[in-house]
Nucleic acid binder design. Structure first.
Length: 442
RNA sequence: CGGGGCGUAGCGCAGUCUGGUAGCGCAUCUGCUUUGGGAGCAGAGGGUCGCGUGUUCGAAUCACGCCGCCCCGACCA
């Protein structure tokens, strides 16, 4: 993509309403635009990152055996009356009436709907276990939206729902998601820590929040230091094999959010293992048994022919919130520092002297070669000054910059800069092409 | 939902107290000069001053009502 043809409205100054760094940087980098309190348009750069995050979530859900569906944003109130939540949910639920005076709502979550889909189609225990998920917009009419996309009213969420024959099998489903979440966040360059959580109004007795540590996090968290750097299972992890090992390794160490905090237990840890930090909740998993299956009649025939009410769990990831969390965890004074896995482009190509036949030629060659090799290149071909281009490229945070200036090109050389470390390396044009064309990690 | 604050050009702001017909910086457009870390000079365009009602010869400015947005707290993916 050429910058001259792209839509990327950068801002030099920060809009007054943005208080936290991720919100400021997303606005300045032209990733989002606020349309109402807690409601945002996603501009091209933001849309690209959102898609990257979404895909990682999707890949890890699929890997763990969950199956993707897509449910609507609008739901019928009748469904929610069955579970009893239509009245219980309160003002956070956006209620809508259609032209026939039918009561509808913009879904804040989908337990009722997925249970409805399940009960109408699944009749035998032989079809279990089943885990269905979708990635869809949600609306929760927060009293006080804030922090940009971190606490919006409309947000993109991955929500998965597991169905099992008995509590023991449901716990296996729970552990699969637990491990999938560890991998999902790690792939985005985040250090996440699962913490025992209150099950809240959703009910149930087993729940973990996945917390990303960041100074600007909303909640105070406490955990054992070893949890932070603990390696996550690899891509070859066998979800049909031993799940308890990973699960127990994580859950045996102290980790709790403020509301679940046990000061005495925490204080019993060695002093150098006690970590008190701020955290951002990016995922939340629940096992809640038959809360919805019972009220909504989701039953299957068991091995002995009698009906069994299925055991359920739900597993959420705040996809749009993750973008804010990643920026909170990865930025510097100059702007965003994207992990390669979620960067809107793989690298930025800076032509320091557009209009100069030598730099234009070198840039065209690099751009064409890397694009042909499947790299997403953002080519700054504008006639802005060098300083402006450097500042813009740093702001939007692409992990690599290839800088093409007249002096270097005269020697057949370009400069490669790593956005995170700031390290620069001078390479020949061909070596630079080779470096990125063959780079396997993209 | 309690408390506080703010709505003036795309963004950041001054002007409001003390009413007289709107300004600064950045951005944008044109030209010239510049060209490796957000350039300089010259010129230009862009605003029903959030909306409504009222007071007044006259309202961005005063009064009343409404809407929107932000911050602190309580609540929450």
């Amino acid at each position: 993509m050429r910058v001259s043809r792209f839509f990327m409205p950068l801002m030099k100054e920060t809009p007054a309403e943005a208080q936290i760094v991720s919100h400021r940087l997303m606005l300045r980098a032209g990733m989002i635009r606020q349309q109402s309190a807690g409601i945002y348009s996603w501009l091209p750069l933001g849309k690209r990152v959102l898609a990257k995050i979404e895909n990682i979530v999707r890949e890890e859900q699929n890997r763990a055996g969950a199956i993707e569906v897509l449910m609507p944003t609008l739901q019928s109130a009748d469904l929610w009356r069955e579970s009893g939540r239509y009245d219980a949910y309160g003002a956070e639920m956006l209620r809508i009436t259609d032209r026939h005076e039918r009561e509808m709502l913009y879904g804040p979550t989908n337990e009722e709907m997925i249970t409805d889909i399940f009960r109408s189609s699944v009749k035998s225990y032989r079809q279990l276990p089943l885990n269905l998920y979708h990635i869809q917009w949600k609306f929760r009419d927060e009293v006080r939206p804030r922090f940009g996309v971190m606490r919006g009213r409309e947000f993109l969420m991955k929500d998965a729902y597991s169905f099992d024959l008995d509590p023991e099998k449901a716990r296996i489903a729970y552990r699969k998601m637990f491990i999938a979440y560890l991998r999902t966040f790690a792939r985005m360059g985040l250090k996440s820590v699962p913490m025992r959580a209150d099950t809240g109004p959703i009910g149930g007795d087993l729940s973990h929040e996945f917390i990303v540590l960041a100074e600007t996090g909303e909640s105070q968290v406490f955990c054992h230091r070893d949890l932070i750097e603990m390696p996550v299972p690899g891509a070859d992890f066998d979800y049909e094999g031993d799940l308890e090992g990973v699960f127990n390794q994580r859950t045996s160490l102290y980790a709790a959010t403020e509301e679940m905090h046990d000061a005495a237990a925490f204080g019993a840890l060695p002093a150098d293992k006690q970590v008190t930090a701020r955290g951002i909740e990016v995922g939340h998993i629940f096992y809640f048994g038959t809360k919805y299956s019972k009220s909504m009649g989701a039953k299957v025939a068991g091995p002995d022919g009698t009906d069994v009410t299925v055991e359920m769990g739900s597993y959420g990831i705040g996809v749009s919130r993750l973008m804010g969390a990643i920026i909170e965890a990865s930025h510097d004074d100059a702007g965003i520092v994207w992990p390669e896995s979620v960067a809107p482009f793989d690298l930025g190509l800076i032509n320091l002297k557009s209009g100069d036949s030598a730099t234009d030629g070198a840039c065209s060659k690099i751009y064409a070669a890397l694009t042909a090799a499947g790299r997403d290149v953002l080519y700054d071909d504008t006639d802005e000054r060098a300083g402006t281009k450097f500042a813009s490229m740093d702001l939007i945070g692409l992990p690599w910059q290839v800088i093409v200036g007249p002096k270097g090109v005269a020697n057949g050389e370009v400069e490669v800069k790593n956005r995170r470390s700031g390290e620069r390396e001078t390479l020949s044009v061909d070596a630079a092409i080779k470096r990125f064309a063959e780079r396997p990690s993209f």
